[in-house]
Computed example of a mutant assay.
Amino acid sequence: MNLKNCIAFLLLSLINTSAFAQSESRNWNGKKCAVVLTYDDALNIHLDKVIPMLNSYQFKGTFYLIGNSPVVSKRIPEWRIAAKQGHELGNHTLNHPCDGSLPGRGFVTTETDLSKYTVPRAINEIRITNTLLNAIDGKTERTFAYPCGDLTIKDTLYYNALKTDFVAARGVSSGYANMKDVDFSNVNSFFQNGSTAEQMIAQIEEAEKKGSFIVFLFHGVGGEHALNIDLEEHRKLLEYLKKRKKDIWTAPMIEVAKYIRENQNK
Score class of each variant (00 low, 15 high):
Ile76Pro: 08
Pro77Arg: 09
Pro77Ser: 09
Pro77His: 12
Glu78Asp: 13
Glu78Val: 00
Glu78Leu: 11
Trp79Asp: 06
Trp79Val: 11
Arg80Ala: 10
Arg80Leu: 00
Ile81Asn: 13
Ile81Lys: 14
Ile81Met: 09
Ile81Gly: 03
Ala82Tyr: 10
Ala83Ser: 01
Lys84Asn: 02
Lys84Cys: 00
Gln85Ser: 15
Gly86Leu: 04
His87Val: 14
His87Met: 13
His87Asn: 14
Glu88Ser: 03
Glu88Leu: 09
Leu89Asn: 02
Leu89Ala: 01
Gly90Trp: 08
Gly90Gln: 11
Gly90Ala: 14
Gly90Ser: 08
Gly90Met: 07
Gly90Arg: 08
Asn91His: 15
Asn91Gly: 15
Asn91Glu: 15
His92Glu: 09
His92Asp: 09
Thr93Cys: 02
Leu94Val: 07
Leu94Arg: 15
Pro97Lys: 10
Cys98Ile: 02
Asp99Thr: 07
Gly100Phe: 11
Gly100Arg: 04
Gly100Asp: 03
Gly100Gln: 05
Ser101Trp: 07
Leu102Asn: 11
Leu102Phe: 14
Leu102Ile: 12
Pro103Arg: 05
Pro103Met: 05
Pro103Gly: 02
Arg105Lys: 10
Gly106Gln: 10
Gly106Trp: 06
Val108Met: 03
Val108Leu: 08
Thr109Tyr: 08
Thr109Asp: 12
Thr109Ser: 15
Thr109Trp: 07
Thr110Pro: 06
Thr110Tyr: 13
Glu111Pro: 00
Glu111His: 02
Thr112Lys: 08
Asp113Ala: 07
Asp113Val: 10
Asp113Asn: 13
Leu114Gln: 12
Ser115Arg: 00
Ser115Ala: 11
Ser115Trp: 00
Lys116Phe: 01
Tyr117Cys: 01
Thr118Cys: 12
Val119His: 10
Val119Arg: 03
Pro120Ile: 10
Arg121Ala: 03
Arg121Gly: 00
Ala122Asn: 03
Ala122Val: 09
